[in-house]
């Protein structure tokens, strides 16, 4: 076992050379790569933690918003329910009022129609009654009846006051006509002419005309005045009285 000091020194040098070479080509690059990778991992972890923190913050924010939304939703729903109930009540009230009004209107219309119908019925009944009377009198009418009517005309003329009779006489002097439904007999014409001359104190020469379409009666016509006695005037007066008896509107709603 011999120790070669030259070899020892050379091996020390060799070892230092190997140390330098490995440090240059092995440890430094490997450690640098590991450090770089660790740095990348640390950066990635830091980024991940940052993102996790952001995600957690977002989640908290989201949950808070969700809670707020739920609370707001409940509040809004309650308010909407109240509004809907109020609106419903309002519309119901309005609908009831409209229905009541329509019913009142309809009832009033119904009553009015009933009254109209009743009045129409009454009017129709009276007109038919009058027409029946008129036809009966016309059927019974003849020259003799006309003579009585002429007497009635003279009686009416006599009932006139002096001034009216004077005006009538003045008008009759210009033109005068006697209209009847049936032709008057000559004697009747002379009697009537004499009666007129006496009552009106005028020399009259009436023109006698007969018209079958004219109502039963006698009419004295002058250019400005007219004096008549006809059955129609009686019936018209009766109709007016009948109409006056029919009430203008009913008050029975049932």
């Amino acid at each position: 076992m011999k120790l070669d000091w030259f070899t020892v020194a050379a091996q020390i040098g060799n070892f230092l050379l190997l140390l330098w070479l490995l440090k240059r080509f092995l440890y430094r690059p490997i450690l640098a790569a590991m450090a770089a990778r660790q740095q990348r991992i640390a950066a990635a972890l830091a980024e991940a933690q940052l993102k996790a923190a952001e995600a957690e913050a977002l989640q908290r924010d989201y949950l808070m918003r969700q809670q707020e939304l739920a609370t707001h939703r409940e509040t809004e729903l309650a308010r909407a329910r109240e509004e809907i109930a109020a609106q419903r009540q309002l519309w119901l009230t309005q609908a009831r009022a409209e229905v009541d009004e329509a019913r009142e209107r309809w009832w009033a219309e119904l009553v009015r129609e009933q009254q109209d119908q009743r009045q129409t019925l009454q009017r129709e009944a009276s007109q038919r009654l009058l027409a029946l009377a008129r036809r009966a009198l016309r059927d019974l009418g003849d020259a003799e009846l006309e003579a009585h009517i002429a007497s009635a005309l003279l009686a009416r003329l006599q009932e006139l006051d002096g001034e009216t009779r004077q005006a009538l006489a003045q008008a009759a002097r210009e033109s005068c006509a006697i209209r009847t439904a049936f032709p008057l007999p000559e004697s009747q014409q002379q009697t009537l002419t004499a009666g007129l001359r006496q009552l009106l104190n005028a020399d009259l020469q009436p023109d006698f005309r007969s018209d079958p379409a004219a109502p039963l009666g006698i009419t004295l016509e002058t250019p400005s005045q007219r004096l008549a006695w006809t059955l129609d005037s009686y019936l018209d007066g009766f109709a007016a009285e009948l109409q006056a008896l029919i009430p203008p509107g009913g008050n029975n709603h049932s």
């Binding site: 076992m1 120790l3 070899t7 020892v8 091996q11 020390i12 060799n14 070892f15």
Partner: peptide
Amino acid sequence: LSTTTALALG
């Protein structure tokens, strides 16, 4: 022994 001595001296 020279090598191991060198290492031991190191």
